[in-house]
């Protein structure tokens, strides 16, 4: 690529488009970014060339239809480095909740002509279908995360996988623990860092929108939640809301939550 700008595409599948906004929210830094890269496909921002061959693809959203499967395979083939962004792309997102519900019932209740809706049996994150080189988690992801990943990739360095528990960032910011002082059912001990500990910073419990950290102990935290007056179903809901297709937060695990003695 010597002498040429890095070519970048931003694709989307089933999602709310919110993660792509993290690019647009860069503000003035976008001008710097445009000096570094050519953005050849980014429908939300303007450029449209969905079959372009690129160095880096950012992919938002999860896979819901047969057409999605064909498209993601083509994107993979056209991309040197594929980065998924956000809870939908990395862990299913809200729409993956239909995997654990009566799908036909949901479709019938939402659409006037359900027979015209053609869906895959399961919503899957991108990594279930193609090789993913880097996952950036969050619902939504933020500009700092995207900037850090881009900076590393442009420098030829492996981006840092931010996978520690949120508690560490909370303590670095000297936020007072809402679970220990107020008995709130905080998801921080199983949730990955990256958001900047936003919720505990304003006195509320983390609800896990950044997905599972590495080496989580969902069973122990669920058992502790039961002492905070959450029943197993409520604990399960906290786990599966945004990231139900992440095996670490899967309903199966949640159903196995132990009651504390």
């Amino acid at each position: 690529m010597a002498g040429e700008k890095t070519r970048v595409a931003v694709h989307k599948f089933s999602s709310c488009d919110g993660c792509q906004l993290a690019f647009l929210n860069m503000g003035e830094a976008l001008l710097t970014l445009f000096e570094q890269v050519d953005i050849v496909h980014f429908a939300e921002a303007g450029p449209v060339d969905p079959t372009a061959v690129v160095d880096i693809s950012f992919v938002e959203g999860s896979l819901s239809t047969a057409a999605d499967l064909q498209r993601i395979r083509a994107i993979r083939a056209n991309s040197g480095f594929l980065v998924t962004i956000g809870a939908c792309a990395t862990a299913g997102g809200l729409q993956a909740l239909r995997n654990v519900a009566d799908q036909d019932d949901w479709v019938a209740s939402v659409y006037a002509t359900p027979d015209t809706i053609s869906l895959l049996d399961k919503v899957t994150p991108i990594n279930a279908q193609v090789k993913v080189d880097l996952e950036i988690h969050g619902c939504p992801v933020n500009t700092r995360q995207l900037t850090a990943a881009l900076r590393s990739l442009l420098a030829g360095v492996t981006p840092v996988d931010e996978q520690d528990k949120l508690c560490l960032e909370c303590k670095r910011r000297h936020h007072v623990c809402v679970m220990v002082t107020q008995g709130m059912p905080c998801m921080g001990p199983v949730t990955r860092t990256g958001c900047g500990a936003l919720c505990p910073g304003v006195g509320r419990d983390c609800y896990g929108c950044y997905g599972a950290a590495e080496n989580v102990n969902v069973s122990s935290l669920g058992g502790h939640f039961s002492t905070l007056q959450l029943d197993p179903a409520q604990t399960s809901h906290r786990l599966v809301s945004f990231n139900s297709a992440d095996p670490a937060f899967s309903p199966g695990l949640a159903a196995g939550v132990k009651q504390n003695d």
Partner: peptide
């Protein structure tokens, strides 16, 4: 380890 959340609150 069955109880520990490996969350680092103790060391922090």
């Amino acid at each position: 380890a069955e109880r520990c959340l490996s969350c680092g609150n103790c060391t922090s």
